[in-house]
Amino acid sequence: MVNWKQHAAQDLEDYPLIQESLQNLPEEIQILEQAAYSIHSVRLDKIPVQGGTSRRESDLIDNIDRRGRLQGNLELAKRKAERIERGLSVLNNQERLVLERFFIHRTRDYMDRLCEELGCETAQIYRIKDAGLKKFTLAMYGDLLS
């Protein structure tokens, strides 16, 4: 049986890191693109060593491979961030605040702060969290609850 709460919580906890990767991946791709220009072209008249390629050719292939992998990772991160944002968009203000404090931007005293800000007891905060997590899960994954 799929534990939908754990999956949803993990996606929310990963969200800040996914957003960070959306900043870092394009920069890394750009660095590799610039590095590719500094790799001198392969001499076509040179005979490669037995069973292999020249060092330059190998460096260029490695660079192309890394850029392709990073580009794929960037596309996956974009799609996941967009799905999480759509899931968060269905929540009301209280639910979103509670889920953000529980999973996305958790601080040491998050529960006390939530109780104070929302004027609720701890039990009510947990009810809001559960309701928000259910709505988020339905928006993200469809009906996994049945």
Score class of each variant (00 low, 15 high):
M1S: 08
V2G: 00
N3R: 06
W4K: 01
W4H: 05
K5I: 12
Q6V: 12
Q6F: 06
H7K: 13
H7F: 14
H7S: 07
H7E: 13
A8M: 06
A8Y: 03
A9M: 04
A9Q: 03
Q10P: 00
E13M: 15
E13I: 15
Y15M: 01
L17H: 12
I18D: 00
Q19A: 11
E20L: 13
S21E: 07
P26R: 03
P26V: 05
I29C: 07
Q30S: 09
L32V: 06
E33W: 10
E33A: 10
E33S: 06
Q34I: 15
Q34A: 12
Q34F: 12
A35W: 05
A36C: 04
A36L: 15
I39H: 02
V42S: 13
R43D: 15
R43Y: 12
R43I: 07
D45L: 09
K46D: 12
K46G: 04
P48C: 12
V49E: 14
Q50I: 13
Q50K: 07
T53I: 14
S54Y: 02
R55I: 15
R56S: 08
R56E: 10
E57W: 11
E57C: 07
E57P: 01
E57R: 12
D59A: 14
I61V: 13
N63P: 09
N63M: 13
N63C: 15
R66S: 14
R69S: 15
L70W: 05
G72R: 00
N73H: 13
N73C: 06
N73A: 08
E75I: 04
E75R: 03
L76V: 13
R79P: 00
K80F: 01
K80C: 01
K80H: 08
K80I: 02
A81M: 07
A81F: 09
E82A: 10
I84D: 01
I84P: 12
E85T: 13
G87A: 01
G87Y: 14
L88W: 11
S89H: 09
V90C: 04
N92A: 09
N93H: 11
N93F: 05
Q94E: 14
E95N: 04
E95P: 07
R101S: 09
R101A: 12
F103S: 00
R106N: 14
T107P: 00
D109Y: 15
D109N: 15
L114Q: 03
L114K: 07
E116H: 10
E116D: 04
E117L: 12
L118C: 06
L118P: 00
G119W: 00
C120Y: 14
E121G: 10
T122H: 08
A123D: 08
A123K: 09
A123Y: 05
Q124T: 13
Q124F: 10
I125Y: 02
Y126N: 03
Y126D: 01
I128S: 04
K129P: 04
K129M: 08
L133P: 02
L133E: 04
K134P: 00
F136E: 03
F136R: 06
F136M: 06
A139N: 04
Y141R: 03
Y141P: 04
G142C: 01
D143A: 08
L144H: 10
L145E: 05
L145R: 02
L145N: 01
